[in-house]
Design a protein around this nucleic acid. Structure first.
Lengths: 138, 138
DNA sequence: GTACTTGCAAACAGTTTGCATAGGC
DNA sequence: GCCTATGCAAACTGTTTGCAAGTAC
């Protein structure tokens, strides 16, 4: 998600209707670096849109994920987090403050993943999954 | 999970009882590089242990995870996979054959994560989450 | 006016739990 | 024999779906 206009444009061109609920989710996610859960998004937006339902939040996030304006993250066991940053990047979850920090590739073609420490962050566990095509299947 | 004896030893010393069901799960996981799901484990073992229940499979996997002889993996959206390899390593899931390949750190202190290709594997997406403690919380 | 979207409630699926019975030690 | 483990079924939880009413276009 780069800008409001670009996202709106893409939705229009794909035939999605611009409802107030969808626009609210889009505005909430734009530039949001907190990696909110669906619950958090729903709770926050409900203050201004009291009838906003969970299914609409999920529907909108699913729509944004389908047009690649948002990605869902499996950081915790029991729910998903959503990220408007769709560039390839790395997540550091701090067990102390609960923050989720981003490390970008920043134009580089690779990132060095250390076993112990990265940018002052002390690593307990590394979960790295890549999806794609193996050499036998190419 | 390095060996049968070492795992048995650890369970005994932690006060866990060695039931046929638990031994079956342990034998099934030992050296298994397929990253099976609980469903797969249950289905396979049920051929020899027709009354083996899902809850016992989950209970046993939970026990093995607690004593750090197994780790659970969030590779897919809808279920967990289990891995007896508890060394830090990387998973490559091939959309073609469905295999999950391991890349070990192999004594090194870091792994270079490229954006496009690794060991002949063509990368579509990278999911990397590290958990630990940030510099402010140390 | 015609779809598509919403909001509610019910369904869904993987995992977890409660409890009476079974069995390791 | 004691106490934990098992197996069944029911509960749980985040997410998804069905459908009547509402609304963007």
């Amino acid at each position: 998600m780069i800008s409001f206009e670009e996202t709106i444009q893409k939705l229009r061109s794909e035939g999605f209707k611009l409802t107030p609920q969808r626009l609210a989710v889009i505005r909430y996610m734009l530039g949001n670096t907190e990696h909110p859960s669906a619950l958090k998004i729903h709770k926050e937006l409900r203050r201004r849109y009291p009838t906003l339902s969970f299914s609409t939040v999920y529907n909108t996030l699913g729509m944004l994920e389908k047009i690649a304006e948002v990605q869902s993250l499996h950081i915790f066991d029991d729910y998903l987090n959503y990220d408007p940053n769709i560039q390839p990047h790395i997540h550091l979850y701090c067990k102390g403050c609960g923050n989720i920090y981003d490390i970008m590739f920043e134009g580089r073609d690779d990132v060095v993943v250390p076993r112990n420490e990265i940018e002052g962050f002390l690593i307990d566990s590394i979960g790295l999954v890549m999806k794609g095509t193996c050499k036998h299947c190419r």
